[in-house]
Amino acid sequence: MGREDIGVLYEMLSTERRRRALAVLTDAEEPLGREELARRIVARRRTADAGGVEPDGTRKTDIEISLGHIHLPKLESGGVVERTAEGKYDATPLGCDLRRAAQAFETSLDADAREIEGTASPTNRSDAVPASEADDGR
């Protein structure tokens, strides 16, 4: 794989919306239409009071539009997803591999963040002694 190919793969994962779309498509049992894909993206991020709106205020219809005009064409041109004859979308084998790579990368970043948080401040550590119990030397 050349540098240009790696650049294309990075571009596929450069936005959270594409990463979420790829995650939903790789988990789906069958190809999904754009509306169903948007619904599932919202469902994954829904909080108790979201009601069809992502926590950041994005509506399902806005997601559906951005998927159709920006993200799915980009994923399709990169060979990560393909459109079926019925106009639905499915992850390609490359898309499944890319999702696994993204998951491994995110897991690594999460572990690094936990490690940094754990050493940056003793109050974040589970073995830290509350200030009220600390011996201040008096």
Rank of each mutant, 00 (worst) to 15 (best):
19 R>H: 13
32 L>V: 03
49 D>N: 06
32 L>E: 03
36 E>V: 04
97 D>F: 12
117 E>C: 08
102 A>N: 12
70 I>H: 08
10 Y>P: 06
58 T>Y: 05
95 G>C: 11
75 L>N: 01
99 R>Q: 10
59 R>C: 00
28 A>I: 03
32 L>P: 01
25 L>R: 04
33 G>K: 06
32 L>F: 05
50 A>F: 02
55 P>C: 00
37 L>E: 00
24 V>I: 06
134 A>Y: 05
49 D>E: 04
33 G>F: 10
39 R>N: 07
118 G>R: 13
9 L>Y: 02
133 E>P: 03
36 E>C: 04
44 R>K: 13
126 S>A: 12
135 D>R: 14
28 A>F: 01
126 S>V: 10
1 M>S: 13
38 A>L: 00
25 L>Y: 00
117 E>S: 14
119 T>K: 14
125 R>W: 11
14 S>M: 07
91 A>W: 02
12 M>R: 07
80 V>F: 06
68 G>H: 08
93 P>C: 03
24 V>D: 00
108 S>C: 07
62 D>T: 14
8 V>Y: 01
55 P>V: 05
47 T>Q: 02
60 K>Q: 08
128 A>Q: 11
114 R>H: 08
137 G>M: 07
42 V>N: 00
131 A>N: 09
75 L>V: 10
24 V>F: 02
79 G>V: 12
80 V>C: 09
3 R>T: 10
102 A>C: 11
93 P>I: 02
71 H>M: 03
9 L>V: 04
113 A>Q: 09
22 L>M: 08
45 R>K: 00
5 D>S: 13
52 G>C: 04
85 A>D: 15
137 G>I: 11
95 G>L: 06
18 R>Y: 00
64 E>N: 03
58 T>E: 05
74 K>D: 13
138 R>H: 13
14 S>A: 09
49 D>C: 01
44 R>E: 00
83 R>Q: 15
113 A>N: 11
118 G>H: 15
70 I>W: 14
51 G>D: 09
102 A>P: 07
11 E>K: 11
50 A>I: 01
70 I>C: 06
6 I>D: 11
49 D>S: 05
20 R>M: 06
73 P>G: 13
18 R>N: 02
91 A>C: 03
21 A>P: 00
55 P>D: 00
106 E>H: 12
48 A>N: 10
22 L>N: 02
4 E>K: 07
60 K>A: 13
127 D>E: 04
96 C>V: 15
51 G>N: 08
69 H>M: 13
1 M>G: 09
8 V>L: 14
21 A>H: 00
62 D>I: 07
79 G>C: 06
17 R>H: 05
109 L>T: 12
